[in-house]
Design a protein around this nucleic acid. Structure first.
Length: 505
RNA sequence: GGUGCGGUAGCCAAGUGGCCUAAGGCGAUGGAUUGCAAAUCCAUUAUUCGCGGGUUCGAAUCCCGCUCGCACCUCCA
């Protein structure tokens, strides 16, 4: 079964083979930690998670690295004078307000004026969200999730290499720039040419920002700036690194290679970020490639519109899980499923209806799992990937991660007969190593049996319904059922009597 | 203006030359079941694939033109 992925570098779907058989080295651009991550961020992170889990089930040993960008970049970092507001300061300001208003609990962060504390606060929030959504890499912190600020020295070393090899220069303003003209392939990932970039820069980039650069597309590697909130000593003065260099450096260092197998990120990162990474890494290594496969997730839309704070359709993970979309709590497995069920190569439209559809699918999968577990006592048979259902499921994913095709194999199989439940359980478990929703590892139980606070006891109400029905007091039974439903429970009959399960979304 | 992706049923979405009179899911409708519901099960739900040409024995799938949507080219996943 050949694995084929769409490679943004060649704009073609190509056979995927890791450089070293059975070992995959992949790098994913991670979050900036100036705020809570939103569901669009997580679509991209979950897309990387899906690749990783799929490759593992296919028998590969995958090393996955994802960075935490905690260097306090400027909002206008792309400008040569590094103007604008410091993102870390802006984050601190927000945190202080949130602390006052009680949105951030007391003690969650001691001193918002310490940028490292701000970064750690949002890093922790990111890790918490990630673990809830089943991002495997989040359980590998900190070893596989490096902080940029822990690699400043390494960045300086690469900058030095680039200067020595003629790919970088110190401008008249003292800043270190990468010279795009020194790297003929600059633009090959995004389809830009230097001429186009020069034209495109007209009118948008202010003249004085360009004065120190040899070419308008030259980008910052090190900016001497005493006033910056986070700053480090360097051969080019006290200052901070450019925002592309960290990925080149950490990928090389943690994956131990100049050429890696897969690099992922959101589509917006193709240019300039990934273009610049390639220039830096290849400039430093002399290799033809940095990553052999570049894979990019398309943007997520919300109810047909681009997500933006001003439109009010901007959701963080905690917003969605907390019920901001549906009006009731959403189980993490539902959001995970919703964010991975559509193909990464198309824009996904996040809707309330879609979320509810996903809840139904997740519930179905979990009930199927529970049925098999009960029938087998948890004893699964041995199956390998040649099992027809797995071959179909994995075969679809092998075709550039065709998740719809894969689910199109899973669902009909699920509702078919299962004469050998031990075998079926083994198949489901393998599939769930990729989907991680039935059951979701590390997540709280899907069915909360415990009684809620405030004296609301679903089990008690269920018993009341059964008693009322036994007495043919249907008015009473309906009343109790309504109470449960209003509280967000699904109510149904079973041979053991009435059962109430919490709605998943 | 440049670059890339896409327009398939009410919605999501697979299929990229014959097995397609087009997977799968959701929804809807009818039936079984139920005190009524829910859940479950069964059945039905696109002769048609943005529009117009063309190539071919044969096209949703290839070519040309048009059109609409999205994204990037500037911080953004």
């Amino acid at each position: 079964m050949a694995i084929r992925f769409y490679n943004s570098l060649t704009n073609q779907t190509e056979d995927f083979q890791p450089l070293e058989a059975g070992v995959v080295r992949m790098y994913s651009c991670g979050p900036t930690v100036y705020d809570f991550a939103h569901i669009g961020n997580f679509r991209s992170f979950l897309f990387a998670d899906l690749i990783r889990r799929f490759l593992e089930v296919m028998g590969n040993d995958v090393t996955h690295i994802m960075n935490i960008t905690d260097v306090g970049h400027m909002t206008d970092d792309h400008l040569a004078d590094g103007g604008g507001e410091d993102k870390m300061e802006a984050a601190a300001k927000r945190l202080k307000e949130d602390k006052k208003s009680g949105k951030v609990p007391d003690g969650a962060i001691e001193n918002p004026d310490d940028p490292y504390q701000v970064a750690q606060f949002f890093t922790d929030a990111f890790l918490e969200d990630s673990r809830k959504l089943g991002l495997k890499i989040a359980f590998e912190y900190p070893q596989n999730i490096p902080h940029a600020t822990n690699h400043i020295q390494d960045m300086q070393e690469m900058i030095d290499e680039l200067i020595k090899s003629g790919h970088a220069y110190v401008g008249p303003d003292g800043a270190v720039y990468y010279s795009v003209e020194s790297f003929p392939k600059y633009g090959s990932l995004s389809g830009n040419t230097l001429d186009q970039l020069r034209e495109g820069s007209g009118g948008r980039v202010q003249q004085n920002d360009q004065a120190s650069k040899k070419h308008p597309a030259d980008f910052l590697l090190w900016k001497p700036d005493q006033s910056h909130i986070m700053k480090w000593d360097s051969p080019w003065g006290m200052g901070y690194p450019g925002w592309h260099i960290e990925c080149s450096v950490m990928a090389r260092k943690l994956l131990g290679r100049d050429v890696i197998d897969i690099h992922t990120g959101g589509e917006d990162l193709i240019f300039p970020h990934h273009e610049c990474e390639i220039a830096q890494s290849c400039g430093a290594s002399g290799e033809d490639h940095f990553a052999r496969f570049w894979m990019h997730a398309r943007f997520l839309m919300v109810e047909g519109e681009k997500m933006s704070k001003s439109k009010g359709n901007f959701y963080t993970v905690r917003d969605v899980l907390g019920g901001k979309v549906t009006g009731r709590e959403v189980h993490p497995a539902v959001l995970r499923y919703e964010l991975i069920r559509s193909h990464y190569g198309s824009n996904m439209n996040f809707t309330e209806k879609g979320l509810k559809d996903s809840a139904a699918a997740v519930r179905k999968l979990n009930e199927f799992n529970a049925m098999l577990e009960a029938k087998t006592g948890g004893e699964a048979a041995e199956v390998d990937n040649s099992h027809p259902v797995l071959a179909g499921f994995l075969g679809a994913l092998s075709d550039n991660l065709n998740i719809s095709g894969a689910l199109g194999v899973l669902f009909p199989w699920m509702s078919g007969p299962h004469e050998n439940p031990q075998e079926s359980l083994a198949v489901l478990r393998t599939i769930n190593r990729i989907l991680d929703v039935a059951p979701m590892e590390h997540a709280e139980e899907l069915q909360s049996e415990s009684s809620d606070a405030g004296g609301f006891d679903p089990a008690e109400l269920c018993k009341g319904i059964d008693d009322a029905r036994a007495n043919k007091d249907y008015g009473r039974a309906d009343e109790l059922r309504n109470q449960l439903q209003d509280a967000g429970y699904e109510v149904r009959n079973s041979p053991e009597g009435t059962i109430a399960t919490k709605q998943l979304a």
